[in-house]
Design a protein around this nucleic acid. Sequence first.
DNA 1: GTGGTCTAGACCACC
DNA 2: GTGGTCTAGACCACG
Lengths: 126, 126, 126, 126
Amino acid sequence: MNIVISQGSEKPIYQQIYDQLSAQILNGSLQSGYMLPPIRQAAIALKVSVITVKKAWESLEREGLIHTTVGKGCFVADFEPKEIKRLRDEQIKRHLLHDLQHYLAMGIPFDELVEMIQSLKEDLCN
Amino acid sequence: MNIVISQGSEKPIYQQIYDQLSAQILNGSLQSGYMLPPIRQAAIALKVSVITVKKAWESLEREGLIHTTVGKGCFVADFEPKEIKRLRDEQIKRHLLHDLQHYLAMGIPFDELVEMIQSLKEDLCN
Amino acid sequence: MNIVISQGSEKPIYQQIYDQLSAQILNGSLQSGYMLPPIRQAAIALKVSVITVKKAWESLEREGLIHTTVGKGCFVADFEPKEIKRLRDEQIKRHLLHDLQHYLAMGIPFDELVEMIQSLKEDLCN
Amino acid sequence: MNIVISQGSEKPIYQQIYDQLSAQILNGSLQSGYMLPPIRQAAIALKVSVITVKKAWESLEREGLIHTTVGKGCFVADFEPKEIKRLRDEQIKRHLLHDLQHYLAMGIPFDELVEMIQSLKEDLCN
DNA sequence: GTGGTCTAGACCACC
DNA sequence: GTGGTCTAGACCACG
């Protein structure tokens, strides 16, 4: 488990954990069947409250990304490679639609927006 | 003034107001010198508290998008068309950088992301 | 009468007028016996409300810098050159004491503050 | 926390609080990492509304002097000693420039003004 | 426990 | 008429 928490962030801690685990599951670095550490242990490792970790785990379970077995632990759900890509693209598309609408409302033409994105490639891929 | 408020949104009301007015100023539909409605009148029209409107107006003033004169009202700041485009692009770039990083962290390759954006053009430009 | 009004300033308009006339009387550019323009005329010239001008005139009279004769007009009060200098220095000293205390409270040593002031001479005397 | 509020002052209460805390951070009496009292507790201690305290805290955060974490509290931001001195001098210089212009407009020569300041040293350093 | 948001209603300064 | 400040009190999110 590889998570970085920014204490002073605007984003709630539980959501930072959720976002990073969710991304790691969707990009394949956490594979199906992987067992997440027990919440108490994770809480100590991340230096946050148990409640906070619990909240992140719950969000992941609600989204179907992990499943919990009482007495055994939490495991990354079973996905076929195809399904995982579908899930990821679906989620990205949903957010993209929302974000892009915001930008277009500011009066920037669609094509100019795409150009701007292309121009950011260097900054992003480092 | 053309503002829609979503009461149940995660976004605070004052920020919804700020976002929409800010977008309208930056896309040119509210032009320099335009007088915003008095805060009390706006509050009634939007069915929110005066203070909520005030908070949105304050953010706009802090960003230099409007200026306030006690006893007279609040007015859209003077901008040269060039200046306004610069401000808009700057703001979009800042947000884009943040959003795109989020998507890339999910494991989607940059070029695939751009393709996906292109494919959304129809949905967005209606 | 030589007054510049900044509409968007934080300072109330009536006080801008007061400050500038007061300074001009204390620095000698408006001499004893000079007749101020009638308030209605001044209001038109400055493009502000008559009430605003009246308020500034009243402040000046309260401070003893001008005196009003009904039906004749407002005149700069009689001062001996010595008295005018005394008035000016007194007023400056009063404000200085207040301002400098503020700076010292920020932890800057007195001597360093004086140095800083000296270093601003060029910026100020242009 | 050591704050004195003057209820009848021309200065808004929230700004009095801001000014004093800002000065205390910049002069080093409130050090990096110090936790400000909870806004509700501060409100009781200062005998003002919670909102008034909040407004002051917000200004401090906007200036980067403190940072806030929901559920934890407000803390004095991390500064290197050098940075803090730079911030302080910058702020003092900005205000000095404004104040001194005001005095010079009253017709006092620059050198005479400096003399006057020197003569106030005793009054100020007690 | 912490801060964040929103409300209604009051009084003041400015124009 | 305008905005600026302050109040008391409520409900929610976070840890």
